[in-house]
């Protein structure tokens, strides 16, 4: 159902997205059978392709040329893919999107080389773009994403943190790459400065909303929908928004401390996820996600009416309401 909705939202861009999909397959082609297999394994596991979609739609506010804009859309998805392979090593994850991760199917070192390979392919690809500004935007984004991940590890299992810490973390972890996707699409297609700024901000707010929803879904989705056990983030010590709303409650504190201690049994996990799901923390988190979504829509209001604007609006709304 969710996939159907997404397909409908992408329908206007179908032919260009198919081109990008083919190009992604070409991009991960390697002279190493192992890297080829590992990269294809990852690519074929699918994904929402949100970043390329935002690049394409943002580019429609300038001179849209698919041959040119593909050189931005493909590397942004590749960078996202490369970071997932390495994240699975960091999180020791066995499953992603219902499939074995590269590190589980082969080993951590193969995952390292696969990520390095895909990341290098992304950079090779984006050098087809000759705008120094575009490279400065993307390189800044990549460094900041890493800084965000480092902070995430520093903040792991710390229940005493503020909402601000969480927002700063998810800004770097997710919102920046989505914001840069919009910004780069607009910059490379030669959109005017004001439009670039609105699209950049739109991407940022959508990215924040998207990550909050992702963090909610970690509790509200089933294991099957997630492709991994519900509550995995918490068990790994990642303190997300719903937990920040519950951490000071005497009813929850001991259970949360127990969860992040790493000694939780399967029965305890299921019970805690159920309690969190039924708590008001989910609604509170959704309200914040919605606030970001509203801010995103305000940025869009400043842009001229067009089919691209309509699509951005619909995709943003979908992302704010998605079920998994």
């Amino acid at each position: 159902m969710e996939k159907m909705k997404l397909k409908m939202l992408y329908s206007d861009m179908r032919s260009d997205l198919d081109l990008i999909e083919k190009e992604l397959e070409i991009a991960v082609n390697s002279s190493s059978d192992l890297l080829n297999e590992a990269s294809l394994h990852l690519l074929q596991a699918g994904g929402k392709r949100i970043r390329p979609v935002f690049v394409l739609l943002a580019a429609k506010f300038g001179r849209y040329q698919i041959d040119q804009i593909m050189n931005v859309a493909v590397p942004l998805e590749l960078i996202h893919m490369a970071s997932l392979v390495h994240d699975d090593v960091i999180d020791d994850s066995e499953m992603r999107r219902g499939q074995l991760t590269v590190k589980a199917q082969w080993n951590n070192r193969v995952a390292m080389y696969t990520g390095d390979f895909i990341f290098a392919r992304a950079l090779e690809y984006i050098t087809n773009i000759k705008s120094p500004q575009a490279h400065r935007i993307l390189s800044y984004t990549m460094v900041e994403i890493c800084v965000g991940e480092i902070i995430q590890i520093e903040d792991k299992s710390k229940l005493d943190q503020r909402l601000q810490d969480y927002f700063r973390r998810i800004k770097r972890k997710t919102a920046l790459l989505i914001s840069s996707s919009c910004q780069l699409g607009a910059v490379v297609s030669g959109a005017d400065e004001k439009t670039v700024t609105h699209l950049k901000r739109f991407g940022y707010y959508v990215g924040m909303s998207f990550q909050i929803i992702d963090d909610i879904l970690d509790f509200t989705s089933t294991d099957k929908e997630l492709g991994k056990p519900a509550g995995s983030d918490l068990i790994q010590g990642n303190i997300t928004l719903p937990i920040l709303f519950l951490k000071d409650s005497p009813d929850f504190r001991p259970a949360l401390e127990h969860a992040i201690s790493g000694n939780m049994t399967e029965i305890e996990r299921v019970a805690l996820v159920k309690r969190i799901r039924e708590s008001d923390a989910i609604a509170k988190s959704k309200a914040i996600s919605n606030r970001y979504l509203q801010k995103a829509l305000i940025e869009l209001d400043a842009l001229p009416s067009s089919p691209a604007k309509k699509s951005l609006r619909e995709i943003a709304l979908y992302m704010g309401k998605r079920k998994f």
Binding site: I90, P132, M142, C146
Partner: peptide, 25 residues
């Protein structure tokens, strides 16, 4: 793992700031 990724981002950033796209490639 993150140190490796961080350094990779930095190498790109250094060359992007020099606008040396050919060397990045």
């Amino acid at each position: 793992v993150l140190a490796g990724d961080y350094y990779s981002g930095l190498y790109y950033q250094i060359l992007a700031n020099l606008s040396n796209i050919d060397l990045i490639r």
